[in-house]
Amino acid sequence: MSKISKFFKVGSTSSKNRGPTPQEAIHKLRETEEMLTKKQEYLENRIQQELTTAKKHGTKNKRAALQALKRKKRFEQQLAQIDGTISTIEFQREALENANTNTEVLKNMGYAAKAIKGAHENMDLDKIDSLMQDITEQQEVAQEISDAISRPVGFGEEYDEDELLAELEELEQEELDQNLVSMGGLPSVPSASLPSRPASKKKVDVNDDLDMEQLAAWAT
């Protein structure tokens, strides 16, 4: 049995009672990331040192230069492996964080569902319908009361519109007369008698004959 198989076998037997929580697993993964990041920095420094050593010896000591380049290659391979490992750990950590978030969301939604259920336990749909009907009726009554209050009060009396118009005309005539009086009054009737109407033709002729007779007697 390989060491890896033994490791997972031991881990599985030890975690039968209680597995790690998502928070614990995320914490462990973060620690591993930090350790690998430090390893990355170390390897990058070693690669730079070996490169400097190879340049330093160059053609003077080819054997030492080649050994430095070989070490540089090994460090680069290790660095590449660590880069891949960190990427895998980051992916696993993000998956755990998302799963933990989803778990918390579902848990809170479950609490909310229980709270809603508890709030609805004491509610009777028939009572709710009856209550809503009562509310509607009371709103209608309130509207009728508002309409009645805002309606002009006539005290139950009805008037003939024609009589009112006639009275209005009288008032207008009185106002017109008052205006005429204030402007000097109506024109006065002349005191002198008007000329009498001319007598008929027949009467005029008789008078003319009498005048002629009187004139003749005076002349004689």
Rank of each mutant, 00 (worst) to 15 (best):
35 M>N: 09
36 L>C: 09
38 K>Y: 06
39 K>C: 05
39 K>R: 15
40 Q>T: 15
42 Y>G: 01
43 L>C: 01
44 E>N: 11
45 N>R: 14
46 R>P: 00
46 R>W: 03
46 R>V: 00
46 R>S: 13
47 I>N: 00
47 I>Y: 03
48 Q>D: 15
49 Q>K: 12
50 E>A: 05
50 E>F: 02
50 E>N: 05
53 T>G: 12
53 T>R: 11
57 H>W: 15
57 H>R: 10
58 G>E: 14
60 K>G: 13
61 N>H: 15
61 N>V: 11
62 K>C: 05
63 R>N: 11
64 A>C: 09
65 A>Y: 08
67 Q>L: 14
68 A>L: 01
69 L>T: 14
69 L>V: 11
69 L>Q: 13
70 K>V: 05
70 K>Y: 07
71 R>P: 00
72 K>F: 01
73 K>H: 11
74 R>L: 14
75 F>T: 02
75 F>G: 00
76 E>N: 12
77 Q>N: 14
78 Q>F: 15
78 Q>M: 12
79 L>K: 07
80 A>K: 06
80 A>V: 04
81 Q>E: 15
82 I>P: 00
83 D>G: 06
84 G>R: 02
84 G>A: 07
84 G>W: 08
84 G>T: 04
85 T>R: 04
86 I>H: 05
91 F>I: 07
92 Q>P: 01
93 R>F: 04
93 R>P: 03
94 E>H: 14
96 L>V: 05
97 E>C: 07
97 E>Q: 11
98 N>K: 15
101 T>D: 10
102 N>V: 10
103 T>G: 11
104 E>H: 04
104 E>M: 07
104 E>V: 11
106 L>C: 04
106 L>W: 04
107 K>E: 09
107 K>C: 06
107 K>Q: 07
107 K>D: 00
108 N>S: 08
108 N>R: 08
108 N>T: 09
109 M>N: 09
109 M>K: 13
109 M>P: 03
113 A>R: 06
114 K>A: 03
116 I>W: 10
116 I>N: 06
116 I>K: 12
117 K>H: 10
118 G>P: 00
120 H>S: 05
122 N>W: 01
124 D>E: 10
125 L>N: 03
126 D>K: 03
127 K>R: 03
127 K>E: 04
128 I>C: 01
128 I>E: 02
131 L>W: 03
133 Q>V: 04
133 Q>K: 07
134 D>Q: 09
134 D>R: 07
135 I>T: 10
136 T>I: 06
137 E>Y: 14
138 Q>M: 02
139 Q>Y: 04
139 Q>H: 01
140 E>S: 11
140 E>V: 08
141 V>C: 04
144 E>T: 10
144 E>R: 11
144 E>H: 09
145 I>L: 14
146 S>Q: 09
147 D>M: 06
148 A>W: 08
149 I>T: 09
151 R>Q: 01
